[in-house]
Write a protein that binds this DNA or RNA. Structure first.
Lengths: 239, 239
DNA sequence: CCAAAAGTGTTGCGCCTACACCCATGC
DNA sequence: GCATGGGTGTAGGCGCAACACTTTTGG
């Protein structure tokens, strides 16, 4: 970034793309929009849009999220930059550099399919159709990134409402990681990590209609987990 | 990214910035260039440059690295995207969106200060002067990211020559993390991780002039570390 | 012989896995 | 009572930190 010769560089369209995730009834869901125009008309895609002249990518991501879902200032919205996708040809019409974000939401209000999208909807991650552009790649990168975040940060609480049970928190981990966890060990890990969750006032709540009502917790002040909460081995043990 | 109205979006200059790191005599070093022109003339900055019309950010990063250091195709070059910096006003002249990368190199050939930079030089990370633009922030982010990568990936070998000793590999960890490690435990961890390092043919090598010659190793095929090699606690234990 | 660096052994603590077992509630 | 989900206890194992110790080289 040393040269400023006006003829030494090209200009690019810059967009943000959002992988908006939530957990609904124990399953990971992603917010998708159906495209109303070419290219990829009728195909599903990640929400997103063009960067405006005076906003950062983070600001644009929040604006687009509000525009496309009506969720302006959700408390506990967890927005994180994923990575930037810049391959030439990723958009057949023109050169577009896209900054992708992950966004984690508590249980999902139905989106109002605003803007130029035909409709917007929550779809189960595992039942997502092929996506337009390279959005399938972005979505897969997002799931992997969020899965890793759950190991080392308190991001899981971003999927939960203000007051939640430990069973609901465990469902978040299981939905994102796609594996089951031992309930007893999970609750010990969570409660042993200072600042992860704090007891919330209020009566216990029934979760499945049956069973013992569960105590309620709210997100604590910590952001990182020490020690980490590692997901079950992707493959065999080290030995 | 639904709308294609020609008037609905603005165009931006896009650059890549590189945090090029190496370990030299046990200390983390960063490649910096001295700016030859305004703004920030005379200040040090990260190498980088504008994205060309037909290349991805990754391609541009490799090209800039070759142009500014003469290191075209270093074997074992480890290039990774860091994040994108897009705040308005980060460049006083114009709106610039910059995709930042980390680059890890084995022991460092002196750079040829090419291009429009006054000079290019390796400087110790801890003795780096204040940098131009937001490059100080980018560099700090890069060090944190690389430190985290060492815990979970085999990236440390990217700092080492083709054949290296376990002592040299340990110096990489200590330089990046800024802490000392137990030699016995370190070698056990490394050797117990399949695919991290493999014995290399060839005689042992003396490292400090004295002492027992050390066996040589080369990088293995693995990319991720299971289990991770965690750095010493930033703070107290969980209990 | 001494210093320095590589390499090996060993012990103890802590975390974590894997269950087994009680508690409370709706049907 | 029984099914369902919340909450607690416990025994074994694996990993790891913190040493002590041996080996091999140069001076």
């Amino acid at each position: 970034m040393q040269g400023y010769d006006k003829h030494a560089y090209e200009l690019f369209a810059v967009t943000v793309d959002l992988a908006v995730l939530t957990v609904r009834e124990g399953a990971l869901h992603v917010l998708l929009v159906e495209r109303g125009q070419q290219p990829y008309a009728g195909r599903w895609a990640l929400p997103g849009g063009f960067l405006l002249p005076d906003e950062s990518a983070e600001t644009a991501a929040r604006r687009e999220l509000a525009e496309e879902t009506g969720l302006g200032d959700v408390t506990g919205l967890h927005l994180g930059q994923l990575r930037t996708y810049s391959e030439p040809g990723r958009d057949p019409r023109m050169r577009v550099v896209s900054v992708a974000f992950t966004a984690l939401l508590p249980d999902a209000p139905e989106p109002r399919g605003g803007g130029d999208a035909a409709q917007a909807r929550w779809l189960p991650y595992d039942a997502a159709p092929p996506l337009a552009f390279d959005h399938g790649l972005i979505l897969a990168d997002a799931r992997e990134r969020v899965g890793a975040q759950l190991e080392h940060t308190c991001a899981a609480t971003a999927f939960c409402p203000a007051a939640f049970t430990l069973g609901e928190l465990q469902q978040v981990y299981e939905a994102v990681w796609g594996s089951t966890l031992d309930r007893a060990n999970f609750r010990r890990k969570v409660l042993a990590t200072p600042g992860f969750v704090e007891p919330a006032a209020g009566a216990a709540r029934l979760t499945g209609g049956r069973g013992k009502p569960a105590a309620l917790y709210r997100a604590g002040g910590a952001t990182t987990l020490h020690p980490p909460l590692l997901r079950p081995s992707r493959e065999g043990r080290s030995a």
